[in-house]
Design a protein around this nucleic acid. Structure first.
Lengths: 330, 330
DNA sequence: TTGTATGCGTTATCAC
DNA sequence: GTGATAACGCATACAA
């Protein structure tokens, strides 16, 4: 637990010189450098970053707020964020908000309290104007999900186009009675995916039947439940587009429990391409987001903001990709 | 970006008084308290924790090092850790090590640099003696996986007994030709699970056939590969115990691709009870670890250490549970 | 090239 | 009940 003072004394130099050695300042003679290094080693000295952070008024930490790490969708994005962060000498603080406003506020306080230099939001629960306020003072990037009205940067895919792609795929393999399992929430992605779904139908002169739209909460059980609703009705779709893979997997489970088969009786498309999508039987057709890249680009954008490179919010959109697997084989 | 100085000036009091108000010291008159609160509000003051942390020489942050958040096994454990941490005014810093020694070292440096008050390890890659060294200086808890030789606390289940339970279950429903899909690594849990597997067989006078043991890396693909090895041999087991759920799911996929059925042709047991275990078709029989409790107990143990309550390493074992599902139905 | 001195924002000890 | 002031460990402007 030695301090810089003790190292200085041991090496017979001033603390300033020790500090220079630690920070690899060029203007220090090799001889004194070696002496300091020896003292550091002897005393087993580790710099106390609390002192440095206060002095420099920065922590080289970034906050990453996500609803929950249990959603496998986030893992590759976080990996991208981390890779870029580490490459630039930043550390990442991953925080589960559980989509809880109070919890999220506590974490945002870390930013206000200077314990982090910037923040990446995944699914902000905070109100639009509050977010704008924070983004006006601190570096902020929204990833995937974002508040349309907030003055804050974001990186995402075009969800409307992605949903359109998915439904066009179903139509192209012959389906015309297509269900949608969506979610009841105020996320921008949800609204956009519903729009994409409708556009694809309308374009092909298929009437959008409101009873063909069910709602879940992104989770497995809710997908299962939604599909059971279809199956117990007299109006069963021949294909279903789900706005999350977990719901799609739940839907498939319901279909099979009913003794029907995927894709021959009902085809299913998911969204996100989580790791389990290709493990499942049948493997799942889905929309892949460029997850790793989303993370990289978000972190790069945050770095630019932290270095004060610009202050106008940026909107960046990356490309999605349709991945056709067993669940929609002809 | 006001400081405590400015608040003091605005309220017409000393910084000491402002500090007392912030820290809810009882000995401050209601009148001055209100004045200070008003000044804080007016200036939109947020305490700078960098200053406080330096002064207090603590951060009220704990480090949680795990291989990767993409393993769904960790999510509920982390939830337990967080709940206890938050209840006690600590924040949690989640860090992916990717099982990389260098990466892990960088994070351990955060501890040495005083940016965290303690650490919970999930699968330490660090050498035993290095870990002992760190645990001698800083609060450390190992969760689930641990270094047997290291002088550091740990919280885990009895993996030998858990594996024994799983294999006994297979034997009890009539299997005698039982495969093991394990991993080639030096984790204590791996060795213990292999031992439990063998004890269950030996107790029932079943010869332990080395060719019945295959190795993967916990992942889906490796389980699939291992099962293909069995299936292409002339010695196919009637049941397989996998030391991870993902490998079990991979194994099932291989079995079905071969045109065989689970559990009628080959029964499969996994380990961990990850969320997807019950979603999969067939749903997976597995050993459930008390994940949330493992997290809670680990964090509680760390809190005790951080408060200097004791310094002898503790070993705590929690109970496992066999969850029988479709993959081993008679 | 090196040392001295100052301050980052906070808390806590000591007077009053 | 309140205020002055000294730390906490470090980085840096300025002197030498």
């Amino acid at each position: 637990m030695a301090t810089i003072q003790e190292v200085a004394k041991e090496a017979g130099v001033s603390v300033a010189t020790v500090s220079r050695v630690i920070n690899e300042s060029p203007k220090v003679s090799p001889k004194t450098r070696d002496a300091v290094l020896a003292a550091i080693k002897k005393l087993n000295y580790e710099p106390n970053l609390l002192g440095r952070n206060l002095r420099l008024m920065q922590t080289r930490m970034v906050l990453v707020l996500l609803p929950t790490i249990s959603n496998p969708f986030y893992a590759p994005i976080v990996k991208g964020i981390e890779d870029i962060a580490h490459k630039n000498g930043f550390n990442v603080m991953l925080c589960n908000t559980n989509s809880d406003v109070a919890r999220e506020r506590v974490y945002i306080d870390l930013l206000k309290n200077r314990l982090a230099d910037g923040v990446i939001f995944f699914a902000p629960t905070i109100e639009d104007d509050k977010l704008s306020e924070i983004a006006a003072t601190f570096p902020v990037v929204q990833c995937c999900e974002y508040k349309k009205e907030a003055r804050a940067s974001h990186v995402a895919i075009n969800n409307e186009a992605a949903a359109y792609t998915a439904v066009r795929h179903l139509i192209s393999i012959g389906h015309r009675k297509i269900g949608l399992i969506s979610c009841k929430n105020s996320f921008i992605s949800t609204a956009e995916r519903e729009e994409g779904f409708k556009r694809a139908l309308i374009e092909q002169n298929i009437i959008v039947d409101p009873t063909m739209i069910k709602y879940g909460n992104y989770g497995f059980s809710s997908g299962l439940r939604a599909m059971k609703h279809y199956l117990s009705s007299d109006n069963i779709p021949t294909a279903v587009f789900c706005i999350s893979d977990s719901m799609a997997i739940g839907a498939i489970k319901a279909i099979r429990e009913k003794g029907l088969r995927v894709p021959s009786d009902i085809a299913v498309v998911g969204f996100d391409d989580i790791t389990f999508a290709h493990m499942f039987s049948p493997s799942l057709t889905t929309i892949a987001q460029p997850k790793y890249d989303l993370g990289c680009v978000s972190m790069e954008l945050l770095l630019k903001q932290m270095s004060g490179e610009f202050d106008n919010p940026q909107s960046i959109y990356l490309k999605h990709e349709l991945i056709v697997r067993e669940s929609t084989l002809r």
